[in-house]
Simulated scan of single mutants.
Amino acid sequence: MLIVRFLSAGGDHPLVGVRDDDTDTVTELPVAAVGELLALPLTDLRALCLNNTTGTRHRAADVRLLPPVDRRTEVWAAGVTYQRSREARITESENAADVYDLVYDAPRPELFFKSAAWRVTGDGECVAIRPDSDTDVPEPELGLVVNAGAEIVGYTVVNDMSSRSIEGVNPLYLPQAKIYLGGCAVGPGIRPAWEVPDARDLPIELEIHRAGELAWSGATSTSLLRRGFDELVEHLFRAEVFPDGAVLATGTALVPDLPFTLADGDRVAITVGGVGRLTSTVVSGKDAVVKLLENR
């Protein structure tokens, strides 16, 4: 089962439904938005999804998937949660490498805002590299889908795009390196928590294709994550409220070695075992992303 946000064939407004891979169908849920689902307690959300017998059915091949976030849902991210991430951030930093070393072992995790729902791109759409950065990479991450009550109700795939050359100059530039139009992709949907027996042992794979050839690939596992999921969620909710829930990306352990950088036209594919596969095409600058969002 995958909770999805989608456009039906010929439809002009987003719908929310459940995709059943066994029957290759998507069945509409009686809600107007994913944010409406994430306002529910986990028990109610589960009952709604499992007892959905009257919703309109669509062939999966006929629908267009949209990012599984909307309304007031926000995307946040955790940083320096894997040993490899710590090493990469230290390597790229010109002036303050020790801050990444310190936060890796600190009681308080690094958490930062990533994107409002309306800026997020989805599976099969585009991500962008900044024209004022010369080293840019995708960051493949498991995303925790959290409801308004701080319960982990599901999981998704997140591409936390990063401008390494900008953040490397000064850690205070992290918002510009991380938060920009085209810098966050989420999808293809939400795998319910009750269908993932152990989210702390999921394989993550990243492939970057250029001109039809494999330019970079890597694999890791969420078992290498230093921080606990409940720990990250608890810190996120300490001083915030999320009436329509949130997606919290849990950090990356797959970082291409310098001087690798993404290029216009690259194809990025992120697979999280048991959760889904998120694909994106890289574009340079924001114009293509603006056009995508205007025509969605």
Rank of each mutant, 00 (worst) to 15 (best):
N95G: 08
I90F: 03
A78C: 10
R86L: 15
G79L: 06
A88V: 09
D101E: 14
W118G: 07
C126K: 07
D132Y: 12
P138T: 11
A88R: 12
P109I: 01
D134A: 06
I152E: 02
P140V: 14
I152A: 01
S133M: 14
A88I: 09
P131G: 08
R86D: 15
G143Y: 09
V127F: 00
P109E: 02
E151N: 07
N95A: 08
T81W: 00
C126N: 05
P107H: 01
A88T: 09
E141N: 10
A117Q: 11
E139C: 05
E139N: 05
P131D: 08
T121M: 04
P140D: 03
V146C: 13
V80R: 01
G149R: 08
V137N: 04
E141Q: 04
Q83H: 13
G143K: 00
Q83D: 12
V145N: 14
V145F: 13
S85Y: 04
L142V: 07
T81Q: 14
T121Y: 02
F112A: 03
G122F: 07
S85F: 02
A116P: 09
V80Q: 04
E110R: 05
A116L: 07
G149A: 13
I129F: 00
Y100G: 05
I129W: 02
G143A: 13
D134K: 11
P109R: 00
R130W: 04
V103L: 11
P140Y: 12
Q83P: 07
Y100V: 06
E92A: 11
G154Q: 06
E110Q: 03
E141A: 15
G154M: 08
A78Q: 01
Q83I: 15
G154R: 01
V127Y: 01
A148E: 15
A128K: 06
S85R: 02
V145I: 12
N147A: 14
G149D: 14
A148Q: 15
E110F: 10
C126R: 05
A117K: 10
K114W: 01
G143F: 04
Q83L: 09
V99T: 06
E139G: 09
T135M: 13
E125F: 00
D136G: 14
V127N: 01
I129E: 01
Q83F: 07
D101R: 10
S93C: 05
L111W: 05
R89G: 03
R119L: 10
P131S: 14
S115L: 02
G149E: 12
T135V: 09
A128Q: 04
V145A: 09
Y104C: 08
D98F: 15
T81P: 03
E125Q: 11
E139K: 06
V146P: 14
T81D: 01
D136F: 06
R108S: 09
E141M: 06
D123Q: 00
W118C: 13
S115R: 06
S115V: 11
A106M: 05
K114L: 05
S115C: 08
F112P: 03
T121S: 15
A88L: 15
R108W: 04
V103R: 13
L144C: 07
V103D: 10
A116M: 03
L144I: 10
R108H: 09
V80G: 12
L144M: 07
D98T: 13
I152T: 02
F112V: 01
A106L: 04
